[in-house]
Simulated assay, not measured.
Amino acid sequence: MIEHVLNDADTIQGLSVLYNVPWQDIADYNGLEYPYTMTSREAYYTLYANGYLLVRRQSATRPLTFYAGSLFMTDVDSQGVQKVYELVEDTTLAAGVAEGYFYVRSRLPGSFGNTIANSVVLSGSVRSNSDPGSLSITNPEPFNNGKDARVRLTGQTIYINSDQAVTTTLEPLGGTDLMVSSDGDLMEDETGDWAAVAGIDNIKQAVSHRLVTRRGSLTQHPTYGSRLHEFIGLAQAPYIRQLVELDIHETLNYEDRIDAVTVDNVVIQQAAYYVYLTIDVSGRQEIIGLQVDQSGVAIAA
């Protein structure tokens, strides 16, 4: 059993690629339904019951401000259940005899936070700028927008059936990654999931990514990428081809999965290069054809 604690960036499709398990299997194993995962912020605005409390107080000489985070509660019902609602933002009652509407949200997600009208009658842990004194509290309208959803939230755990998961030691030569088009867009497979690329095809894609990326454009990875874009449009002097070949070797020298690179041919045009490479990967040779221009790099068929 693999236990994965969700962060804000995790999706069911991303976990599918990470553990090489179909996303449908992950969803079924955890009893999840669309959208499967949510950030805590998304859940806060989607799943939690919320509404307005009408708060009244007797005459006072100064305004009274209640601070966000103040708690208001229902009475304990016959089942021993008490529901708690949290003030979302600071709210002020004017001086004198005053009343105001306080926007509150359930502290727990789902339909648990739903309640009938006039059931919120108690103030709990109230934070204010002075003693609130005697208050009259009620919810004139029911809270009925709490939603039950079979999802996992940020910080919760998704379980991966280890019998289905393929660990990194069993990955094909070259590893696995998401498939990206020549335009840099993620691609879908036949089931509507994100398509993956593995093995030699993944290495070919990695070669393309390194050559298309302008060196220095990724601040956290200053050595990633090439300088090929600097040569496009220059006069076709004899040394240009040598500069292209040198830059390809320098760029791909950082790709640990490649044992050796041979530049077979470089065809120079005014706005593009056509490069033909042979790469050695664990004793296996693969030929790659690339078009290099200002818009990017595409691996030829």
Rank of each mutant, 00 (worst) to 15 (best):
P109I: 04
G110D: 02
R105W: 06
A149R: 01
S119D: 06
L135N: 08
L153Y: 09
D131R: 08
Y101M: 12
E99G: 13
N118C: 05
F112A: 10
A94L: 15
A117E: 05
R105S: 04
A94Q: 14
S130K: 11
V120W: 09
L122V: 08
P140A: 11
G146F: 07
S134R: 15
P140Q: 11
E141R: 15
P132N: 05
F112R: 09
Y101T: 04
T154F: 07
V97Q: 14
N144K: 14
N144A: 13
G96R: 09
R105T: 11
D148K: 00
R150G: 00
T154P: 03
S119K: 09
P142E: 03
G96W: 14
L153Q: 07
A98K: 12
L153R: 04
F143R: 09
D148C: 02
V104A: 13
V84M: 03
F102M: 06
R107A: 05
V126P: 03
A98H: 12
S119A: 14
R105C: 01
G110N: 01
L122C: 11
A94V: 13
S125L: 10
P140E: 03
F112C: 02
A95V: 08
S106A: 12
N139F: 06
S125W: 08
E89F: 11
A98E: 08
N114C: 02
S111A: 15
V104P: 02
P132S: 06
G146C: 09
A98D: 13
F102T: 03
A149K: 01
P140L: 12
A117F: 09
T92Y: 13
G96I: 13
E89L: 11
S119L: 09
D90K: 09
A117L: 05
D131Q: 12
P140W: 11
T138Q: 04
D90F: 08
I137Y: 08
R150L: 01
D90A: 10
N118Q: 07
A94H: 13
G124T: 10
S123Y: 12
S130G: 12
N144Y: 10
I116P: 03
R127P: 10
T154G: 06
L122K: 10
Y103S: 14
T154A: 04
L87V: 08
F143H: 02
G113T: 06
G146R: 08
S134E: 10
V104E: 08
N145F: 00
E89S: 12
E89N: 09
A98I: 13
N144S: 14
V151W: 00
Y85V: 06
N114A: 05
S119Q: 13
P132K: 10
R127C: 03
T91M: 12
K147E: 00
T154Q: 09
N129D: 15
R127H: 15
N139Y: 12
V121M: 11
T92I: 12
E86W: 01
S134D: 14
A149H: 00
F143A: 01
P132A: 09
N139V: 03
E86T: 14
V88R: 03
I137T: 03
E86Y: 01
